[in-house]
Design a protein around this nucleic acid. Structure first.
Lengths: 306, 306
DNA sequence: TCACATTTGAAAGATATTTTCAACCGGGTT
DNA sequence: AACCCGGTTGAAAATATCTTTCAAATGTGA
């Protein structure tokens, strides 16, 4: 079963995948075995160098076997090593043209504040690029279609993800949709029971294995609602109950920069895309609703002096 | 003899040859035999397509044989077809990236979903860059210093900004600080009254003129707390009561992409910088506190099958 | 500790690439 | 016209590379 999962994922996911390789490696790393991780690491670390190697060469370099190299290539979404190698060559050429960034280092305890700003901004930009590159637009399109016509939309998220959920709910509400974000796991389940076909349930969890979020999604799934998972682990338990999976990217984290930070950025981008997609589809009603909500808030602001 | 000439020419000329492939084909065409020219033509005309073909495939496509394809590759300066193919893949990726600055336009109602993703990601990246560039590190440093030693931290934000406030409060709490985000304007004021010198109050408002947020900040300011404003309008009313002003950037907005989206991104970056800065300053206590909070959450996740 | 599932690499099997070599072509010579 | 000959070409053998198989090794939970 586990194997089936992996298989279907790798084949269904990406056809050739151009630039998002480093991101994909990070996303899939947790579901890799130790030796596969070594291979993936080598590939992500030096695409150009690896492109020059044969299976055997790469196997020796990483201290593994040909079979493992091929397995890794498969997991990354290529039919075999040959194709991964071609992609690597492309990637190498690609990144040769873009010049090297200077602030790629981790944030250190004694970094001056200006460096912190620069590094953080850079990292988040990177996260956005990775997310955009790795987002499956077919899944996204399907999710948009479901949300746009939903009778009601329930959103589940706890911890940092709950803020993302609230953000989505706020925005959905602004264009006239009935959307609620649930933080309390009990209430979430209670509400999920009310869902039925034509409704949409969205679970947001970076780890893909947060029980408090999986449970309500499972209930919604069982009830026949269309379920969407926004997660950084496309092979995590949450996807079992998800009709559509939107993958967020995982950036490298350091002691001072917890993963929550980049996962939040990634999740927000996905959520924004979802929102815009829905707004496009419901433009007739969305546009006036948005305008109205602006207007309604105007009186809460003092006109600036001057 | 002729062969010797060719050989020496091709090997001496170029090692792998990066982009100038089309030119090289033209240069060498006269010294090629008829069937080699067919191969070279195909390669120069559609690098991407040819990169997907095996020797046999390319031989069939050009109506020649494998041997001819290999000969052509050699003539072009590669050790064999395999290497030519890698170069082609690189070339294809390269010229693909050349044409892509078309995503700077506004998001339109009829944009395909893939464009939405690209544009949105690009816009948010832009927002991050702008914010980082415009952030006053002196003000930020002062704000960090105040927050790091604060007895308690109160945060005010309503609407979309409230989520940013909550995010900050969550993170502050994770490193052992006493931080609360207030959404209810009445409660915010009620709490602000309790503040005194040594406390910190942070107001988050994009417009800089949200009364519900200004009011509690004013109270905190009057009470002697150190006040910080995170706003997109450094000349707005809120800054009257702010000891330190952190400026977020304002990106252009369109009908489908409300300003709230980019202001949120910008605010989050500022908030992250603030957080990291504080974490640096309180590293001794922050690091173990962060680690502990991870640990505490572990049991809320089901270990993935595998 | 044992039973079980997963991970791993050696070697067999399948493909792709390279090399070899004989047939072929075209033009100049007898 | 027939013949010869250097150069060109592709079929097939030889080699390299990639993929699959399978049993041993490793780890994991009872």
């Amino acid at each position: 079963m586990t194997n089936d999962l992996k298989e279907s994922f790798s084949t269904a996911d990406s056809p050739p995948a151009p630039a998002a390789l480093a991101a994909k490696v990070r996303t899939l790393a947790p579901s890799m075995t130790r030796s596969m991780q070594r291979v993936a690491e080598a590939v992500a670390g030096d695409p150009a160098g690896c492109a020059a190697l044969t299976v055997t060469g790469l196997a020796e370099l990483t201290g593994t076997s040909e079979a493992t190299v091929v397995r890794t290539a498969r997991l990354l979404g290529y039919p075999g090593y040959r194709d991964l190698r071609l992609a690597l060559a492309g990637l190498a050429a690609h990144q040769q043209s873009g010049r090297a960034p200077s602030v790629t280092a981790d944030i250190a305890v004694d970094d001056p504040i200006a460096d912190v700003v620069a590094k953080l901004a850079y990292d988040e930009q990177q996260t956005l690029a990775d997310t955009a590159a790795g987002l499956d637009t077919v899944q996204l399109g399907a999710a948009v279609a479901a949300a746009a016509t939903a009778r009601r939309i329930d959103i589940y998220g706890v911890g940092a993800s709950s803020l993302v959920g609230q953000d989505l709910a706020q925005k959905m509400a602004r264009i006239g949709l009935i959307a609620h974000s649930h933080t309390d796991p009990h209430l979430a389940v209670t509400n999920a029971v009310q869902l039925r076909s034509g409704d949409v349930a969205i679970a947001i969890t970076h780890s893909g294995s947060t029980d408090d979020v999986i449970e309500p999604l499972r209930v919604a799934f069982d009830r026949g609602a269309t379920t969407i998972a926004i997660t950084g682990r496309p092979d995590g338990p949450v996807t079992q109950y998800a009709d559509h999976v939107l993958t967020t990217s995982t950036a490298r984290e350091s002691e001072l920069r917890p993963a929550a930070m980049s996962s939040r950025t990634s999740q927000l981008l996905v959520v924004d895309c979802l929102f815009i997609g829905v707004a496009q589809r419901t433009y007739e009603t969305a546009a006036p609703a948005l305008a109205a909500s602006y207007e309604a808030l105007a009186h809460r602001h003092t006109p600036r002096p001057r």
